[in-house]
């Protein structure tokens, strides 16, 4: 492993996980939905993997698939219930869902005891959460074996989103964001597409939660509080909500910023707040604003290409 990578492997891991989370909220934002349930779905993914690996011998890869499947299974009915709400109402309903997930994770064993004969059974373990055993990572092709799955996962999501972005699906989502009424007049089944975007976002978040479990190793309800949802939102806001490159930039900058700006470590929250405010006010299209990239392109004088956004 090159020294830079090995010195910063934790930061790189968390950047990758946060990119996945940023992309999970991006897909709903790109449809004009402000859903704040991503932290909740992340918890569902992480707890699924953690419970499976502590209570059974099922391998991690199967656990990951199960976590994503559970995310989809829960997102479908919840999406059907709440997606009729607009803007702020949706934001608050999904926030409420996220909090309920956290409260259930905290008191999971009480729920288990309602249905189980064994009153001493401990699965969720309350505030202490589930601790996974530590394995020293082995290095494969220059990266630890814990990093590879996340990297691949992020690449796959990016590939899917990039393909969608230029497809009919992507254009429909954008049209819903810009004008829901117009889109539905043009014959777009708005409800259907909103649900698809919500389920996709939730599945991505559940997968990211599952993949974060072996890195964080201690899965407790504190990981998934309201402020986690806000962090995820900030990645997409800073990066930009109209192109999938946005959340990637946003997550990378916001995760590495505290490391880069070490001299500011006591004032991190102020800098964070300023970045969020200034970017939403003066840079509403985020870092991935096509205009910024246009400027950048002209500066480095790439051959003239067609603008896409």
């Amino acid at each position: 492993m090159p020294e830079f990578v090995s010195n910063n492997i934790s930061t790189i891991n968390f950047i990758l996980i946060n990119i996945a989370l940023g992309l999970s909220i991006y897909i709903t934002l790109a449809t004009g939905l402000l859903s704040l349930s991503n932290a909740g779905f992340m918890a569902i993914g992480a707890y699924t993997v953690a419970i499976i690996s502590t209570q059974s011998n099922i391998p991690f890869s199967v656990g990951l698939v199960m976590a994503i499947a559970l995310g989809v299974a829960l997102a479908l009915p919840i999406g059907m219930l709440v997606l009729g709400l607009r803007d702020i109402y949706l934001a608050i309903a999904t926030l409420g869902f996220g909090e309920i997930v956290r409260i259930i994770a905290l008191n999971g064993d009480k729920v288990v005891h309602l249905f189980s004969q064994n009153k001493e059974l401990i699965i969720f373990n309350g505030a202490e959460g589930i601790t996974l055993t530590y394995k020293t990572p082995t290095v494969i092709l220059g990266l630890p074996d814990t990093t590879w799955p996340i990297l691949i996962y992020v690449m796959v999501i990016i590939y899917i989103l990039a393909t969608l972005h230029n497809s009919r699906f992507g254009r429909i989502l954008a049209s819903i964001r810009q004008d829901e009424t117009a889109a539905s007049t043009l014959g777009v089944n708005v409800v259907h597409y909103k649900l698809l975007a919500f389920v996709l976002g939730s599945a991505i978040a559940a997968g990211a939660g599952a993949l974060s479990a072996p890195i964080v190793r201690v899965i407790d309800p504190h990981n998934y509080v309201f402020s986690r949802g806000v962090d995820i939102l900030a990645y997409a806001v800073l990066g930009g909500m109209t192109h999938w490159v946005g959340p990637i930039l946003g997550a990378t900058v916001l995760t590495s910023l505290p490391e880069a700006l070490r001299f500011l470590k006591d004032q991190r929250d102020i800098v964070n707040g300023l970045i969020i405010m200034l970017s939403i006010i003066y840079l509403p299209a985020g870092l991935a604003d096509p205009r910024i990239w246009g400027l950048f392109k002209r500066l480095v004088s790439f051959p003239k290409r067609e603008q896409v956004s």
């Binding site: 830079f4 990578v5 910063n8 990016i158 990378t252 900058v253 590495s256 880069a260 990239w293 067609e306």
Partner: peptide, 28 residues
């Protein structure tokens, strides 16, 4: 498909540039 600025390899490259940028604090 049209030529795009946000093509896959470009993004990958950007990602690694960003990784490199965080290493501002030198080993001291």
């Amino acid at each position: 498909m049209k030529a795009r600025f946000f093509s896959f390899p470009t993004v990958l490259m950007l990602l690694f540039v960003c990784f490199a940028a965080i290493d501002v604090s030198s080993a001291s």
